[in-house]
Design a protein around this nucleic acid. Structure first.
Length: 584
DNA sequence: ACAGCATTAAACAGGC
DNA sequence: GGCCTGTTTAATGCTG
């Protein structure tokens, strides 16, 4: 019924439902939320204190102004007043920044507490309570003209001034940006309020939480929702003030998004760094970049040291690492308990189950280090392994090695998947056993391989659809991102794969399908029609992988599962159920 | 409900 | 005898 061409909303919902947080994760989120609320209360108190101080200061300064006679001294006092105010403002901003970070932690990502360098002025604009804004107005309105005329010397605060210029509500500097921020602002506030457990209901409102009006700067308390609505309509109606506040909020959101982007970038760099580091002892020349175009050749693993002991210092990462929380990346553990039980990519969708070179290049880093089941069938993986070999033939052991080398997932439960590999080799006609000098090697009969799935929904139409949805259309990506963000969880599908990986996977799939369409004739590296990645992700998400109690290798942390050299030591490293040493 | 496929588990045989 | 390789069968689950 449902054409698998595109991810339908129902499918999306299904995925989201099936891949929501685990009870543990929910608990953690709840705890975070509670802690955050406490912090918010403290912050509110601090705000009030700060504002009182500001009031006092202003009063004092005004008195001094009244007593001061000359214009010059007045101007000096104005400057001093501004400075004092700005110092206070800085204090508040610091607190607000903290607050902001908390919000980010709650809603989006974890930011190092000590992290500085945030654009304070812009960052904090929106967090300034209305009273503070009023204060600022009082100060700025009185002297802004003078300052403008007098080369205002506090250049460092220009931003603050401009950002807080609420007197011109009808000057959207950047419509696009504003629109963007607006959209996301709503969404973000939604997340802030609802990220824990508050589902939107008829009696809920993004601006109403825990009986408190969440309008920036307004903390009016209400007993019931209707009185809040009244308040909302009366106090926060469409006027200059609200408009200005809204605009400030837009900028806040915009800043948050910028910050999020930066932090994502940082995380990516960290992960890349760790990957590289983890592979250092292996002497793999190429940096493991997610977009690396290096084809994984045999030489890569042949250069590996025979000594790289597999005893990966299993640093069992906690299920909810900051990484998994912040970046929606499947960590070894996060996926570990929710991996697909059975199938990889569902062949029903005519997805190219053969991970092509492109796929390997784009995703190898991830699968090499994350204990995530690759979304492809055994047959396609075996074929890939064989085709990657220089001579297009591999011994069984070499196939094993390829599996363990390329996929962290296959460094566990060796008995199981090796059995499956053998089973597949024997079962599928596309794998041909050839007697060799060394013994027996396995090759691929491409024709047979392509004959394997003369399926119904084949053809370019479907392929094109998938292409559109995966690669060329922003729909899927946007939908996924939105879903991920909206749920504030590491989606165990694409999200878990990680947004970069999602794109990589999509790209790989697209590539595969391009190949399928392009060369129905040639080596047919991949002529199998496309399959929707969705089922695969679904599988990834729901798989319940039995954890071997005695599995020393265990789920591989991103750092600990460097490249081993399977050709030499994999049996010791990855085989958890056998200890034979006769490699090659 | 059914067929087809993939996965998993297991039994078995042959070779080293 | 133990292990690896290879074949085969069966059970199970998923999907169209």
């Amino acid at each position: 019924m449902m054409t698998p061409q595109v991810i339908t909303p129902q499918q999306m919902q299904q995925i989201l439902q099936q891949q929501v947080l685990s009870p543990q994760q929910l608990q953690v989120l709840l705890q975070q939320q509670q802690a955050l609320m406490l912090q918010q209360q403290q912050l509110q108190e601090f705000y009030k204190k700060q504002q009182e101080q500001l009031h006092l200061q202003l009063l004092q300064q005004q008195q001094q102004q009244q007593h001061a006679g000359s214009k010059q001294s007045k101007e000096q006092q104005v400057s001093a007043q501004q400075l004092a105010f700005q110092q206070q403002l800085l204090q508040v901003q610091q607190v607000q920044q903290q607050h902001l970070l908390n919000l980010q932690r709650q809603g989006l990502l974890t930011i190092q507490p000590g992290q500085t360098g945030l654009p304070l002025h812009s960052l904090t604009q929106g967090m300034i309570p209305a009273e503070l804004q009023q204060l600022w107005k009082e100060v700025t309105n009185a002297h802004v003209k003078e300052e403008h005329n007098n080369n205002n010397n506090s250049s460092s605060n220009n931003n603050g001034h401009r950002g807080l210029d609420l007197s011109s509500p009808a000057t959207p500097k950047n419509p696009l940006l504003n629109q963007h921020a607006s959209t996301n602002g709503q969404y973000m506030s939604h997340k802030r309020e609802g990220s824990t457990l508050e589902e939107p209901s008829p009696n809920s409102h993004p601006l109403y939480g825990h009986g408190v009006c969440k309008w920036p700067g307004c903390e009016a308390v209400f007993d019931d929702f209707h009185s809040f609505l009244k308040h909302l309509n009366n106090e926060h109606a469409l006027d200059d003030r609200s408009t200005a506040q809204c605009r400030v909020q837009m900028q806040v959101v915009q800043q948050l998004e910028l910050q999020l982007a930066k932090d994502k970038e940082r995380l990516q760099a960290m992960m890349t760094h760790l990957h590289v580091k983890s592979t250092e002892p292996k002497a793999t020349p190429q940096p493991l970049n997610l977009v690396s175009s290096v084809t994984l050749s045999k030489s890569a693993h042949e250069a590996s040291s025979p000594l790289s002991l597999p005893q990966t210092p299993t640093t069992p990462t906690t299920p909810l690492t900051p990484l998994s929380q912040t970046h929606s990346v499947i960590t070894a553990n996060s996926l570990h308990s929710v991996a697909p039980r059975r199938r990889f990519f569902s062949e029903k969708y005519n997805m190219p189950i053969s991970p092509g070179t492109d796929y390997i290049n784009q995703n190898k880093d991830f699968y090499m280090n994350a204990d995530v089941r690759p979304p492809f069938t055994y047959a396609s993986l075996i074929r890939q392994a064989i085709l990657e070999s220089p001579e297009k033939q591999l011994t069984l052991n070499e196939i094993y090695n390829w599996f363990t080398r390329m996929f962290a997932y296959f460094r566990r439960n060796a008995a199981t998947w090796k059995n499956a590999v053998r089973h597949n080799l024997s079962l599928h006609k596309c794998f041909v056993r050839v007697e060799n000098v060394k013994g027996a090697v396995w090759t691929v009969d491409e024709l047979e391989f392509q004959k394997r799935r003369p399926q119904k929904i084949s053809g370019p139409a479907l392929v094109k659809n998938i292409q559109t949805s995966l690669g060329y259309g922003p729909t899927l990506s946007a939908a996924f991102q939105a879903s991920m963000a909206e749920n504030n969880i590491p989606l165990y599908t694409t999200a878990s794969i990680g947004s970069p990986t999602l794109h990589s996977l999509a790209h790989a799939i697209r590539e595969e399908m391009n190949g399928a369409m392009d060369h129905g004739n040639s080596n047919g590296s991949d002529s199998s029609p496309g399959r929707s990645p969705l089922p695969a992700m679904h599988h990834i998400s729901v798989k319940e992988e039995p954890l071997d109690p005695d599995d020393h290798e265990g789920p591989l942390s991103l750092v600990t599962t460097a490249n081993h050299s399977p050709d030499f030591d994999h049996h010791r490293d990855y085989d958890d159920d056998q200890g034979h040493d006769d490699m090659l």
